[in-house]
Design a protein around this nucleic acid. Structure first.
Length: 414
DNA sequence: GGGCAGCCTGGAAG
DNA sequence: ACTTCCAGGCTGC
C-alpha cells in the first residue's frame, strides 16, 4: 500500500445522553463498525476510514484517506466527496459527515422525556439505554443490509455485509493489517456471477434478492430514484432542507410513498422497507415491526388478541400506527430504544441488576425488579451464565468477521 | 384480504 | 450426536 494521509483527532462536544456510540453502533442498525483497539470504533465511510472514540464530554473523530497516488480501484459511492485535495478541506468535510451520519440535530434528552411522559413502559425501560440515536446511513447500504437481515441474526448479518464490502467494495485503507473496504455501489453487484458467488459466501436465499435488487436499482430505477425518496427535512450536507408536512398517524405522505415504492424491490417487504425509511431515508416516524417489536407489542402493549392475534399486514400497520400515535413524529427513534433494550447482546445491563436483587434476597416485589428479571429472557428460562455466554459470542463474531467459504451439504430433508 | 409452506445458514436448546 | 427451533422476513400459492 502507498502512504496514507491521517488527520489529527478532532473533537465535538456531545454528552453520552445525546449519543452513546457503544450502544448505537451495536444495536443492529449498522453492521460495519468494528472496534479496532481500546474503545476505538472504525468504519470505511464515503471514501475514508472514519475512527471514533468517546468520553463523557466529547466525541473524538479522525479520518484516514487514501492518497491520490493510490487511486481507488472502484469509484466511491455517488455522493462521496473527492479525496484528492487538501487535508484542511477534508477535515471540514469529515465534520459534516459525522454530524449528518449521527443525525445530531434532534435533542435526544428532550425526546426521551417526551416519550417517557407519554408512555410508562418506555419510562421504565429506557434509563439503561440512553444515547441511542437513529443514524442517517447511506440509503443503498441500508437497503442491502436489511435485505440481508431477513430471518437472520446480527452477527451473521454483520458477516454478510462485511463480505459484500470485501469482495465488491473499494479498498480504502488499512488499520494495522485489517483492510477497510467501503460499501459497494449498485453497479458493482450487477454481474451475472454475483448470485452464485454470494451463495458460496453463505448468503443463502438472500443472494438472489441482492443481485436482483442491484440490477433494478443500477439499471432500471437508478440510484437517484432511491435518493429521491429521502426526507427533504434531513438532506445530505450542502442541500437546503425543505418541509415534509405535519405528523399524522399513518405517517406523512413522503414516508408512505417511499415505503410503497421500496416494496417493489426483491426481498423487500414492509419490515425491510421501514428499516430503510428510518435509517437510510430519514423518515423518523417509520416503525419497523419485526419479531422483537411484535413480542414487545404483545407483552407490553396488549396486542396479540382477537383481530390482531397474528402479525398480518393489517396487524403490522396497526402496531406501527399505535406507536406513532403514542410516541409522535420520532416514533421510530423511540422504537429503537425499546428494541435495543430487548437485544440479547445488551442483556448484561439487566442481569447486573438481577444479581444485585438476588444477593439482597429482596423479597418485597418492587414492581421494577421483578419485571426486569422477566425481560432478560422473555420466553424461555435462560441462566445468567448462558446470557453471558451469548454476549461473548456476539462480540466475538462482530469483531472476528472473516471470509468463510461455506461447504454445501444437505443437512435436512435429504 | 389472511394463512401457510418453503427458504439458506449457523448457533443454541432440548 | 442428533433433532428442533429460532434469528430484526419475504415470496408465492
Amino acid at each position: 500500500m502507498a502512504a496514507i494521509r491521517k488527520t489529527d483527532w478532532q473533537k465535538l462536544p456531545v454528552s453520552l445522553t445525546e449519543l452513546c456510540i457503544n450502544t448505537t453502533l451495536r444495536c443492529g442498525q449498522s453492521f460495519r463498525w468494528r472496534k479496532s483497539e481500546d474503545d476505538e470504533w472504525s468504519c470505511a465511510l464515503h471514501g475514508r476510514i472514519l475512527s471514533l472514540r468517546q468520553d463523557s464530554k466529547y466525541l473524538y473523530y479522525r479520518a484516514i484517506f487514501p492518497t491520490a497516488s493510490s487511486p481507488l480501484p472502484i469509484p466511491p459511492p455517488s455522493n462521496a466527496p473527492s479525496t484528492t485535495e487538501s487535508v484542511a478541506q477534508d477535515e471540514d468535510d469529515t465534520l459534516a459527515l459525522v454530524k449528518h451520519y449521527f443525525n445530531l440535530k434532534p435533542n435526544l434528552a428532550e425526546l426521551y422525556n417526551q416519550w417517557a411522559s407519554a408512555d410508562a413502559n418506555f419510562k421504565k425501560r429506557a434509563p439503561k439505554f440512553t444515547g441511542v440515536r437513529i443514524l442517517q446511513q447511506d440509503a443503498w447500504e441500508a437497503l442491502l443490509s436489511f435485505i440481508c437481515s431477513s430471518n437472520n441474526n446480527i452477527p451473521r448479518i454483520s458477516q454478510m455485509v462485511h463480505n459484500l464490502c470485501l469482495h465488491y467494495g473499494p479498498l480504502i485503507g488499512h488499520i494495522g493489517s485489517t483492510p477497510y473496504h467501503d460499501f459497494p455501489s449498485p453497479e458493482a453487484l450487477t454481474s451475472p456471477t454475483v448470485e452464485q458467488h454470494l451463495m458460496k459466501l453463505g448468503f443463502g436465499y438472500r443472494a438472489r434478492y441482492i443481485y436482483k435488487t442491484a440490477v433494478m436499482v443500477a439499471k432500471e430505477k437508478g440510484l437517484d430514484w432511491l435518493e429521491s425518496l429521502n426526507n427533504p427535512e434531513n438532506p445530505p450536507p450542502g442541500v437546503e432542507p425543505k418541509p415534509a408536512g405535519e405528523p399524522v398517524e399513518d405517517g406523512r405522505e413522503g414516508y408512505r410513498n417511499a415505503h410503497e415504492q421500496l416494496l417493489a424491490l426483491h426481498g423487500v417487504g414492509p419490515k425491510v422497507a421501514d428499516c430503510v425509511c428510518l435509517m437510510g431515508l430519514g423518515w423518523s416516524e417509520s416503525v419497523p415491526v419485526d419479531t422483537h417489536v411484535w413480542q414487545i407489542a404483545q407483552r407490553d402493549y396488549k396486542f396479540g388478541k382477537g383481530k390482531h392475534s397474528s402479525l398480518t399486514r393489517a396487524t403490522y400497520d396497526a402496531v406501527a400506527n399505535r406507536f406513532r400515535s403514542l410516541w409522535g413524529k420520532e416514533a421510530g427513534w423511540a422504537h429503537s430504544v425499546l428494541f435495543t433494550a430487548d437485544l440479547k447482546a445488551f442483556s448484561e445491563r439487566l442481569v447486573a441488576k438481577a444479581e444485585v436483587k438476588e444477593e439482597e434476597q429482596s423479597v418485597k416485589s418492587e414492581a421494577d425488579g421483578v419485571e426486569e428479571v422477566e425481560s432478560i429472557v422473555r420466553t424461555k428460562t435462560v441462566t445468567k451464565k448462558r446470557v453471558k455466554r451469548a454476549l461473548e459470542k456476539d462480540e466475538h463474531h462482530v469483531l472476528e468477521v472473516k471470509e468463510k467459504v461455506v461447504k454445501r451439504n444437505k443437512r435436512r430433508k435429504t
